[in-house]
Computed example of a mutant assay.
Amino acid sequence: MTAHRYGMAELGGDYARGAAGLALTALPLILLPMHWIVAVVFAAATLVFLAFLVRTWLRHRSVIEADGQGVVAHGPLGTRIAWRDLTSFKLRYFSVRRDRQKGWMQLDLRGGGRRLRIESTISGFDEIVSLAHDAALAKTLTIDDSSQANLLSLGMITPQAGLAERWGVRPATDGPEE
């Protein structure tokens, strides 16, 4: 069983953004007199930044373990999904730029009435995805085109004829082109 964590290097920026947002919304709410409508807007923004900080803290406190039997998230909201219970496998890419050059992936697993989301900022993300993908194949789960494209970009699958054209990838050939 391998243990994976979200490192402080990856989460430090989220902590800083959450703290800055909380300070910029909560402090004026506490220190300045405001019209009630403006106060409601600031209170809503404060709650959003507080929820973001709590989510970041939960990821920081979580340890994900994966092996041939399943995946376990230890921490405040821990859960376990056995590969034999896996019912859904989705691998999504979220871009922060229009050119789709920067971003992160998120693995969404479901099984046994539970759901587990793992972001690519965790150590050993590729290993977890590989184990989950193997389990999804063993259970003959349908893997959507988006997830297949993301698996292809990670180098975990090779392009298949038909799908390769849709993704803009040329399938490999055995011999020279004529």
Rank of each mutant, 00 (worst) to 15 (best):
T140G: 06
L31P: 04
G112F: 06
G103N: 04
D134K: 13
R92H: 07
L53H: 03
L47R: 00
P171E: 08
V40E: 03
F94Y: 12
G21W: 03
P159C: 02
I118T: 08
Q106G: 01
T56D: 00
I118N: 00
R17S: 11
I157S: 04
Q101K: 15
G68W: 02
Y15K: 04
G113R: 01
A51L: 14
G70C: 13
D67H: 12
H74F: 11
A132I: 07
I118W: 00
L27A: 13
H35L: 15
D126R: 14
P171L: 04
V129G: 01
L29R: 06
A66I: 15
F125G: 01
L91M: 10
L58M: 15
V41F: 13
A66Y: 00
R166Q: 11
T46H: 03
I37T: 10
A20Y: 01
A73P: 03
L107D: 08
S153Y: 02
Q160E: 11
G111T: 10
G68P: 08
H4Y: 06
I118Q: 06
V63F: 00
G21Y: 04
A164N: 04
G124K: 09
R80G: 11
T173A: 05
A164P: 13
P28H: 08
G111C: 02
V71P: 06
W57Y: 13
I37M: 07
M105L: 10
G103E: 01
F125C: 15
A149H: 11
L22N: 09
A51Y: 10
A164K: 09
W167V: 08
L151Q: 02
L116N: 01
I128Y: 00
G78E: 10
A45I: 14
L24E: 04
A149P: 01
W167C: 04
G103F: 02
R115A: 12
T140M: 13
A132S: 09
R115N: 05
K139H: 02
W57Q: 12
K102Y: 07
W36V: 14
V48Y: 14
G111M: 10
L151W: 10
R55V: 05
F125L: 13
L86Q: 05
A23T: 09
S62P: 03
P33L: 02
L86I: 09
P159Y: 02
G113A: 06
L32W: 14
A3M: 06
F94T: 14
T87M: 01
G12D: 03
A3F: 09
D145M: 14
S120H: 05
H35R: 12
A66K: 03
L11C: 09
R59H: 04
V129I: 07
A132W: 00
E65T: 11
I37Q: 06
S62Q: 08
D134R: 15
Q69I: 12
R100E: 12
G113W: 09
A26D: 01
A136V: 09
G75A: 06
L141A: 07
F49C: 14
T2L: 05
A16V: 15
R61Y: 09
H4R: 07
L141T: 04
P171Y: 00
D174N: 11
V71I: 14
A164D: 04
A9N: 13
G70R: 02
A26R: 07
I143K: 05
T87Q: 09
A82Q: 14
I122G: 00
W57D: 02
L91V: 09
T79L: 13
M105K: 05
L107I: 15
D14K: 06
